[in-house]
Amino acid sequence: MQNNLLILISLLIILSNIFLLGSSRTGAMIRGIAFQGVLLSLLPLFLPSESVRILDIIILAVLSIAIKGVIIPHYLRKVTRNIRTKKELHPYLGYSVSVIFGLLVSYGSFYFIGKLPFMYLSISPFNTSAAFASMIIGMFIIATRRNIIAQIIGYLVFENAGFILGISIASSQPLFIEIGILLDLLAGIVIMVVAVNHIHLYFDNVNTDSLERLNK
């Protein structure tokens, strides 16, 4: 039962990744990443209860729902409204290509990662593979998108991969470390958004094309 739920969550995560890869609108992407954040926050609940204190798990879940599912999407939405970029994005690679890439990566990570000789450690190999797929997809989004907001979302996907992995494979961190990690992420996003605001003020757009002058 638990296991099936875990697989379901992993599948949903992968689907949301594919969705992010295929969507062209910022608003949709933000919704997608919020959905992924909520999904992730459920993961701690599936941890074997003997290894961690239940209170810790609840605190962690609540905090991550708050940060990943509410605060960060909200903040991103605000900045998107602020800089008024709902237009079509022009990625370096087309959406359909991206989706195909995402599928390939997901399949590949199930194939390769599942074969690694330490998979027995994770609560579910499915989960771990999804994490690595997210990692690569996150980087892919960063690399192929022109819009800075999309890059931030890519970064969030990438960070989520770490979170999934943390939950699924190694759950022995003390609470304060986990919270520190979440807060760090929050602070990172905040400062990125501040940067986006600055960039927008300065260039009147948030395309990465104007950020290619330092190149030698």
């Binding site: 690569i136 980087m139 960063i142 192929t144 330092l214």
Partner: peptide, 17 residues
């Protein structure tokens, strides 16, 4: 190898990947 530092942050991330 001078094309390497192309100035595009996304590509830099790609290098890491």
């Amino acid at each position: 190898l001078r094309w390497f530092q192309c100035g595009r942050a996304g590509v830099y991330v790609l290098y890491i990947g």
